[in-house]
Amino acid sequence: MATKAVCVLKGDGPVQGIINFEQKESNGPVKVWGSIKGLTEGLHGFHVHEFGDNTAGCTSAGPHFNPLSRKHGGPKDEERHVGDLGNVTADKDGVADVSIEDSVISLSGDHCIIGRTLVVHEKADDLGKGGNEESTKTGNAGSRLACGVIGIAQ
């Protein structure tokens, strides 16, 4: 089992970053940390998408990683996509320092995120509470600013 993974985020604009993942036990939580720069100040949706395909930019990554066919939600919700990591918060300089621990994603097994795409979005994720159909699919997080395929790390 891989215990570490990394993702280099890039987009068409100024947004870029490096996100690290570490899972010490196969059924334990995954620590997610790193930094994203070039964002507007505020909240930005942060999700693992189904495919590791960036051939047409971030759009070819498909929908959120959702092997259990659930509705979109927040990272602490029972009803959520596996890939729903909530929001990252950018400061006035456009930098989001990421520090998350998640017990639904994994670096092995059915919820493995390796080979899938991590995406940072234009807007805040409403965590499935926006009151419309799009909220239950995407959290109304808007366009995909930057993305990268999650790969095994040393």
Rank of each mutant, 00 (worst) to 15 (best):
residue 40 T to N: 12
residue 71 K to I: 08
residue 113 I to T: 10
residue 39 L to T: 11
residue 100 I to V: 14
residue 63 P to E: 11
residue 120 V to S: 05
residue 26 S to C: 11
residue 80 R to M: 00
residue 42 G to I: 04
residue 89 T to I: 10
residue 91 D to L: 06
residue 3 T to F: 13
residue 147 C to W: 02
residue 118 L to A: 10
residue 95 V to L: 12
residue 135 S to C: 04
residue 44 H to P: 00
residue 91 D to N: 08
residue 131 G to M: 14
residue 27 N to Q: 04
residue 129 K to V: 09
residue 134 E to M: 05
residue 25 E to R: 12
residue 44 H to E: 01
residue 110 D to V: 12
residue 34 G to A: 08
residue 98 V to D: 04
residue 19 I to K: 00
residue 142 G to H: 07
residue 66 N to E: 13
residue 113 I to W: 00
residue 86 G to S: 05
residue 58 C to S: 03
residue 23 Q to A: 11
residue 33 W to P: 03
residue 25 E to S: 12
residue 76 K to D: 10
residue 130 G to R: 08
residue 99 S to E: 11
residue 26 S to A: 10
residue 33 W to Y: 08
residue 128 G to W: 01
residue 134 E to N: 04
residue 45 G to Q: 02
residue 40 T to W: 08
residue 48 V to L: 09
residue 78 E to T: 12
residue 45 G to C: 00
residue 79 E to N: 15
residue 25 E to F: 10
residue 130 G to K: 15
residue 6 V to K: 12
residue 134 E to Q: 04
residue 41 E to R: 10
residue 21 F to Y: 07
residue 98 V to K: 03
residue 100 I to E: 13
residue 149 V to N: 04
residue 136 T to Y: 07
residue 136 T to L: 12
residue 2 A to Q: 12
residue 82 V to G: 09
residue 79 E to R: 12
residue 17 G to D: 04
residue 48 V to C: 15
residue 146 A to Y: 03
residue 39 L to M: 06
residue 129 K to T: 12
residue 41 E to V: 12
residue 138 T to I: 04
residue 109 G to S: 07
residue 102 D to T: 04
residue 59 T to R: 03
residue 97 D to W: 10
residue 82 V to Y: 15
residue 53 D to L: 00
residue 74 G to P: 04
residue 55 T to R: 05
residue 145 L to Q: 13
residue 34 G to P: 02
residue 89 T to Q: 04
residue 39 L to W: 06
residue 53 D to C: 03
residue 54 N to S: 14
residue 139 G to D: 03
residue 20 N to S: 07
residue 24 K to M: 09
residue 60 S to L: 04
residue 112 C to F: 09
residue 89 T to H: 14
residue 47 H to P: 02
residue 135 S to A: 08
residue 142 G to R: 09
residue 87 N to P: 00
residue 68 L to K: 15
residue 145 L to F: 04
residue 73 G to M: 04
residue 59 T to K: 03
residue 32 V to P: 01
residue 35 S to V: 13
residue 113 I to Y: 01
residue 92 K to V: 06
residue 80 R to I: 00
residue 80 R to N: 05
residue 97 D to A: 12
residue 85 L to D: 03
residue 142 G to N: 08
residue 142 G to W: 05
residue 144 R to Y: 02
residue 78 E to F: 09
residue 99 S to T: 13
residue 150 I to M: 05
residue 2 A to I: 07
residue 28 G to C: 04
residue 26 S to D: 15
residue 133 E to T: 07
residue 70 R to D: 10
residue 68 L to M: 15
residue 23 Q to Y: 15
residue 94 G to W: 13
residue 10 K to D: 13
residue 23 Q to R: 10
residue 22 E to M: 14
residue 33 W to G: 12
residue 17 G to A: 09
residue 138 T to M: 08
residue 24 K to L: 11
residue 144 R to N: 00
residue 80 R to C: 07
residue 68 L to C: 13
residue 133 E to V: 08
residue 34 G to S: 04
residue 12 D to R: 12
residue 141 A to Q: 02
residue 88 V to I: 13
residue 17 G to C: 08
residue 54 N to M: 15
residue 35 S to Y: 11
residue 115 G to M: 00
residue 116 R to M: 00
residue 125 D to S: 02
residue 140 N to R: 07
residue 137 K to W: 10
residue 115 G to K: 00
residue 88 V to N: 11
residue 114 I to N: 09
residue 120 V to D: 00
residue 87 N to I: 03
residue 117 T to L: 02
residue 129 K to W: 11
residue 40 T to G: 06
residue 131 G to C: 09
residue 13 G to Y: 10
residue 46 F to W: 06
residue 10 K to G: 15
residue 128 G to A: 06
residue 130 G to Y: 10
residue 71 K to T: 14
residue 67 P to E: 03
residue 67 P to T: 10
residue 34 G to C: 06
residue 118 L to T: 12
residue 71 K to A: 12
residue 93 D to N: 14
residue 23 Q to P: 12
residue 8 V to G: 04
residue 90 A to P: 07
residue 12 D to G: 11
residue 87 N to R: 02
residue 150 I to A: 05
residue 11 G to L: 11
residue 71 K to V: 05
residue 7 C to H: 01
residue 87 N to L: 01
residue 117 T to Y: 01
residue 122 E to R: 09
residue 61 A to N: 03
residue 67 P to F: 06
residue 89 T to N: 09
residue 134 E to S: 06
residue 140 N to Q: 08
residue 110 D to T: 08
residue 119 V to E: 01
residue 2 A to P: 04
residue 105 I to L: 05
residue 43 L to T: 08
residue 126 D to P: 01
residue 99 S to Y: 09
